[in-house]
Design a protein around this nucleic acid. Structure first.
Ligand SMILES: [Zn+2]
Ligand SMILES: [Zn+2]
Ligand SMILES: [Zn+2]
Ligand SMILES: [Zn+2]
Lengths: 127, 127
DNA sequence: CCTAATTTGCGAATGATTTGCAAAATCATT
DNA sequence: AATGATTTTGCAAATCATTCGCAAATTAGG
């Protein structure tokens, strides 16, 4: 049974994610940490992100340039609204899926098991 | 004005996509072509996929292993239902988004501009 | 056919992510 | 706070998908 140590580097990486609340790549997090004279190796940033994603405390998405980016989020099923202006991500509860599930079943004979949704737009602060 | 030639390799790549109707990586397409003694270089497969995606004739998604995969689809706005059994992808028209847009605006002050949805489940043939 | 424009194939370069391993840090116990 | 087992870190090297450069091959049009 693998124990998990609470280490300084891990705390520093998740602190960045909690503070920024937007999708960040490993390289971006690494750069942010360096700027505040906090030295965490890029490898450790990668490993910590995998760890957080594995525990469901972070969610990953591949951006348009092909880099994997991460954002903090809670474990429960939900979706993300990403602001095109500031990049901030808000958790959105899952509604209006029932009707889609129904349509999928009746129109396509498709039994829905899982789904993913992402929203893009402008947040309140950016308007 | 860049003309676009209709070449044999391009036709062979899109033929595979049209026939399979499921998400395929460049490497998988390349392997499928080799198996039928059709030699198209991996570079050309990549270039053709970019071309098709650019024209909106194919849609890309990054799979769990980090590989970019492509499937044929029409240009109009729609979403995909992917079968967990056979991998086949069906186009699904976009419904039930209005209510989500409303909720986003009223609950989060978020003005929806764009969205992406993906569905996973079991297709009619696989049940 | 001829020529110009475009595409192909190959191998080399790129760039993000992973991995191996010795040294450093963490944790539970004396 | 010293000990020792366990886990993590940092670094550099390895991986692996994707991109690029360029000469040779293919296509389109006359
Ligand atoms: Zn914003
Ligand atoms: Zn949902
Ligand atoms: Zn199926
Ligand atoms: Zn839609």
């Amino acid at each position: 049974m693998r124990a998990t140590y609470a280490t300084k580097p891990r705390e520093q990486v998740s602190a960045v994610l909690r503070r920024e609340k937007r999708y960040l790549s490993a390289a971006e997090i690494h750069a942010i940490l360096r700027k505040s004279r906090t030295n965490v190796s890029l490898s450790t940033v990668y490993r910590t992100l995998d760890l957080l994603a594995g525990k469901g405390q972070a969610s990953a998405r591949v951006d348009e340039r092909g880099e994997t980016t991460f954002v903090v989020c809670d474990q429960s099923h939900h979706h993300h609204a990403v602001c095109n202006g500031c990049g901030k991500v808000e958790d959105v509860s899952c509604e209006a899926i029932e009707s889609v599930a129904h349509a999928l079943r009746s129109h396509h004979g498709f039994k829905l098991a899982d789904h993913e949704m992402e929203f893009f737009g402008t947040c309140g602060a950016c308007r």
